Amino acid sequence: MNDWIQRDVGAVPGTPDTMRLMQRSDGFTIMVGKVELMSDQLCASERALATLTCERLRDRPAARILIGGLGMGFTLRAALDGLGPQASVAVAELVPAVAAWARGPLAHLFEGALDDPRVELRLDDVNRIIQEAPGAYDAILLDVDNGPEGATRRQNSRLYDEWGLKRARWALRPGGILAVWSGHPDRKFKARLKRMGFAVDEIRIRSNIDNGRRHVLWLATVEPDGIGAG
């Protein structure tokens, strides 16, 4: 079996860590330290994050979507496939190297998604973008870190605590959806979503269609009588 080789390294802002793009044969993975953040072989759950969300937005032909985390483009590609021509998708990516890989060694995975006129790529913290946009989005999709606990960047945890969920709710339109990907279950996070005024569906889905460990998706819809941003 071929060994993994390191194709490139990028700094993770706000941490001393680096993000590494690794390749073996024609397969790729992105890692921080020994933690695998994503792989082109295990991407079914990332696609489902967008597919299931867009199915719930069929009555909004001009839906405006925010995706937190560019990754290998699977969530973005699935969102574009599920949205109409009047929709728009903003993608927030904190690590400049990841954006460079999307137009370099990983371009074949993106299939031109970044050139779609519906897409705006912003090299910024998704947390900051959410705070700037009251009532701006029909859905916010978060595939940041490995879920509600910031495994690679402690600041990412702010997206998932009560303050972060309150700001996400503030940035969503009535009936909007906060969709969250996680590598593992988290009962406390699910309870926190409900406490902050979301109706929550928890979905377990394999990382690949036929095999792989089960990942968790939360599709949390803003309830009209839920807690406000304050």
Results as ranks from 00 to 15, higher is better:
residue 1 M to L: 13
residue 2 N to M: 04
residue 4 W to T: 08
residue 4 W to D: 04
residue 6 Q to T: 13
residue 6 Q to C: 05
residue 6 Q to N: 08
residue 7 R to H: 07
residue 11 A to F: 03
residue 11 A to Y: 01
residue 13 P to Q: 07
residue 14 G to F: 02
residue 18 T to K: 04
residue 19 M to W: 02
residue 20 R to A: 02
residue 23 Q to R: 15
residue 23 Q to H: 02
residue 28 F to Y: 14
residue 29 T to M: 13
residue 34 K to Q: 04
residue 34 K to V: 04
residue 35 V to T: 14
residue 36 E to D: 06
residue 39 S to M: 13
residue 40 D to P: 09
residue 43 C to K: 12
residue 44 A to Y: 03
residue 47 R to G: 10
residue 51 T to C: 12
residue 51 T to W: 13
residue 58 R to T: 13
residue 59 D to K: 14
residue 59 D to A: 14
residue 72 M to A: 08
residue 79 A to I: 00
residue 79 A to G: 03
residue 80 L to Y: 01
residue 80 L to W: 10
residue 81 D to N: 12
residue 82 G to R: 08
residue 83 L to Y: 04
residue 86 Q to P: 01
residue 89 V to S: 14
residue 92 A to P: 03
residue 92 A to R: 03
residue 94 L to T: 03
residue 95 V to Y: 03
residue 96 P to Q: 06
residue 96 P to D: 02
residue 98 V to K: 01
residue 100 A to I: 02
residue 102 A to Y: 07
residue 102 A to V: 09
residue 104 G to M: 02
residue 105 P to C: 05
residue 108 H to A: 10
residue 111 E to S: 04
residue 111 E to V: 06
residue 112 G to Q: 10
residue 112 G to F: 12
residue 112 G to E: 12
residue 112 G to A: 05
residue 113 A to K: 01
residue 115 D to Y: 10
residue 117 P to A: 00
residue 120 E to F: 09
residue 121 L to H: 10
residue 122 R to N: 04
residue 124 D to K: 10
residue 124 D to E: 15
residue 124 D to I: 13
residue 128 R to A: 15
residue 129 I to D: 07
residue 132 E to Q: 14
residue 132 E to A: 15
residue 134 P to D: 06
residue 137 Y to L: 11
residue 138 D to N: 11
residue 138 D to Q: 14
residue 141 L to R: 03
residue 142 L to K: 01
residue 143 D to Y: 00
residue 145 D to Q: 02
residue 147 G to F: 02
residue 148 P to A: 06
residue 149 E to P: 02
residue 154 R to A: 14
residue 156 N to C: 07
residue 159 L to F: 08
residue 160 Y to K: 04
residue 160 Y to Q: 05
residue 163 W to I: 09
residue 165 L to A: 11
residue 172 L to A: 07
residue 173 R to Q: 15
residue 174 P to E: 14
residue 176 G to H: 09
residue 177 I to K: 12
residue 180 V to R: 11
residue 183 G to R: 01
residue 188 K to S: 11
residue 190 K to T: 15
residue 191 A to N: 15
residue 195 R to Q: 15
residue 196 M to V: 05
residue 197 G to T: 07
residue 198 F to Y: 12
residue 202 E to M: 07
residue 208 N to G: 14
residue 209 I to K: 13
residue 210 D to P: 04
residue 212 G to K: 00
residue 212 G to L: 00
residue 214 R to I: 05
residue 215 H to I: 04
residue 218 W to P: 04
residue 219 L to S: 03
residue 220 A to D: 02
residue 222 V to L: 04
residue 223 E to V: 00
residue 224 P to N: 10
